[in-house]
């Protein structure tokens, strides 16, 4: 492809990088990334993916912008309260970069639609805030062999990693089944520092871009844990579990599972 004059200027700082260059920028412009969740993690992640010139950015979220979201979900404004999050998100990305084709899905993900949602995308980003969604996305990405960038936040602590099917552990290697309902409080009950998803979501964008470019070392096999109070990053080695019910030697999860929602009030984070 030939860059337009505007693209040469827009992506100059990427093109200069030896690891990106014009060729890498072309890869970004022809890539398709699906962001599941247009909230706290989705906002910084989607903003950076859009600014980077990801060619097609799908965004999935059924939720509506609430005033209490704005403390952390930075791509929605006060005037967006009451709108669908995906519509507000699309406007924000298009304001930054008209090169990006934004496709919105006002769907709640479940076992019936998840495969259809992810099938056309190269990289999937889990920016949700609840266990049923995490397991569903992890399992679907495993079955469909899609790279998955995982992130989660809680109070002052964030976790982020990358799952590459067949090349490393999956989410179930780490936690084979969801915790019982009620054991883990949701963000709504527990609170979250507004900046925290900014840090974790930006790391998710970073990893999604590296996977797309095929450069550097991703977080595959490593769980990065961020403590915003002590301002510390720690890393846990993740190993593929031979007994993993999904990707182990004798798997017993052969199809998608819809777990029950743990909290009736949950919203996508």
């Amino acid at each position: 492809m030939e860059f337009t004059e505007e693209q040469i200027k827009r992506y100059a700082r990427h093109i200069i990088l030896p690891e990106v260059g014009g060729e890498g920028q072309e890869k970004l412009l022809s890539s398709k990334i699906l962001l599941i969740g247009a909230g706290g993690l989705g906002a910084p992640c989607g903003y950076y993916l859009g600014a980077a010139g990801i060619g097609t950015l799908g965004i999935v979220d059924f939720d509506i912008v609430d005033l209490s979201n704005l403390q952390r979900q930075i791509w929605h404004g006060t005037k967006d309260v009451g709108r669908y999050k995906v519509d507000s998100a699309k406007d924000s990305i298009e304001r930054i970069n008209p090169d990006v084709k934004v496709i919105t899905y006002k769907d709640k993900i479940d076992s019936a639609n998840i495969k259809e949602l992810i099938k056309d995308y190269d990289v999937i980003v889990d920016a949700t805030d609840n266990f049923p969604a995490r397991y569903l996305i992890n399992d679907a990405c495993h079955f469909m062999n899609k790279p998955l960038v995982y992130g989660s936040i809680f109070r002052f602590e964030g976790q982020v990693t990358v799952f590459l099917p067949d090349k490393g552990p999956c989410y179930r290697c780490l936690f084979s089944t969801p915790p019982p309902p009620g054991l883990v409080p949701s963000c709504q009950e527990a609170g979250v520092l507004g900046v925290l998803p900014g840090v974790i979501g930006a790391i998710q964008a970073n990893e999604a871009i590296k996977i797309t470019l095929g450069v550097g070392n991703t977080l595959n096999g490593r769980l990065l844990i961020y403590d915003a109070l002590d301002m510390k990053f720690t890393e846990m080695k993740l190993r593929k579990d031979k007994c993993c019910p999904l990707c182990g030697e004798n798997p017993n999860i052969l199809d998608l599972i819809d777990y029950e929602e743990f909290c009736e009030l949950y919203h996508h984070e």
Binding site: F3, I8, K9, R13, I15, I16, G21, G22
Partner: peptide, 9 residues
């Protein structure tokens, strides 16, 4: 830096 950007392209 556009001299280099264009040269690199």
């Amino acid at each position: 830096p556009f001299t280099f950007v264009r040269s690199k392209l």
